[in-house]
């Protein structure tokens, strides 16, 4: 398809303070594809996610990121969202005083650049919540305030469904979810595959199996060391270590 969005990350270097974290990371992904990113704790997966979304503490020292040729790095986080980028946070923040529904409606209006009537919004939100097996009263609760770990993750998915991004990064959305919810998230990802390209960060092979990815990337020390298919995840399970990655890369 000609209008498929493409995210191109080229030789990206990112530091926090003066500590280099990403050391030349390159990755290209298209809307409609599913990529899995695996890697050691502290290897820089969340750093990549934050840097792509434009977190101010993450300094891009060199390299480029484009979405459909547009320079993402020059944009504010909200402008990136408007272009169709989405990040499901590993640790979503709680925001007392701001209800889920009020927040989501404003977010949807900002991303789409148009008013959405309360009626239309409520209708689509109910449908999305149903898809995620969320009780209606969640809409009235304050965003993530007092939510369990799993509820927060589900709420991230609700935001994803509401904003319908072209490229979505799921940063360990599976962690903290029970078996049934993991399957539900995988189902949502699979159901969305035509309109969204996914970069799924996970530590678990069974999640990789559920996601049926087109590519699996293995990251150590701030770089993607290997790219392949599900067999890489299976190998990880078998080896129970990262040593082979360094040896074979």
């Amino acid at each position: 398809m000609a209008d498929m969005a493409t995210l191109v990350i080229d030789d990206l270097h990112v530091s926090i303070g003066d500590k280099p974290i990403l050391k030349g990371l390159s990755l290209t992904m298209k809307q409609g594809e599913r990529h899995v990113l695996m890697g050691a704790n502290g290897s820089g997966k969340s750093t990549l996610a934050y840097a792509l979304m434009g977190h101010p503490s993450y300094d891009v020292t060199s390299g480029s990121v484009t979405l459909d040729g547009e320079d993402l790095l020059a944009l504010e986080p909200n402008e990136r969202a408007k272009l169709g980028l989405f990040l499901a946070f590993q640790n979503p923040k709680e925001i007392p005083g701001v209800s889920v529904s009020n927040f989501l409606r404003q977010a949807a209006q900002s991303v789409r650049g148009e008013k959405i009537s309360l009626r239309d919004f409520s209708r689509s939100m109910s449908a999305n919540m149903k898809q995620l097996d969320m009780k209606p009263e969640f809409a009235r609760r304050y965003l993530n305030d007092g939510f369990s770990g799993g509820e927060r993750k589900r709420c991230e998915m609700l935001q994803l469904l509401t904003l319908a991004p072209r490229i979505a990064i799921l940063d360990e959305t599976d962690s903290g979810l029970d078996i049934q919810m993991r399957q539900l998230v995988a189902d949502v990802v699979l159901a969305q595959h035509e309109r969204t390209g996914f970069l799924v960060v996970t530590h678990y092979e069974d999640v990789v199996q559920q996601m049926q990815p087109d590519y699996v990337h293995i990251m150590t020390d701030g770089r993607i060391q290997m790219t392949g298919g599900i067999e890489l995840a299976e190998r990880l399970t078998a080896e129970k270590s990262w040593d082979w990655v360094a040896e074979e890369a």
């Binding site: 979304m53 434009g54 977190h55 101010p56 504010e76 986080p77 909200n78 990136r80 969202a81 408007k82 989405f86 990040l87 946070f89 979503p92 923040k93 925001i95 007392p96 005083g97 701001v98 927040f103 404003q106 977010a107 949807a108 900002s110 991303v111 304050y142 935001q159 904003l163």
Partner: peptide
């Protein structure tokens, strides 16, 4: 909290809107 400002901006809200939402939210409880 700048982390929350970032979180809201990542959902499409311009910085000013994000801050506005947070101040209004501060009074809500």
């Amino acid at each position: 909290d700048n982390e929350i400002v970032f979180y809201l901006m990542s959902r499409g809200l311009p910085r000013g809107e994000a801050q506005r939402m947070m101040v209004a939210g501060f009074f809500e409880p």
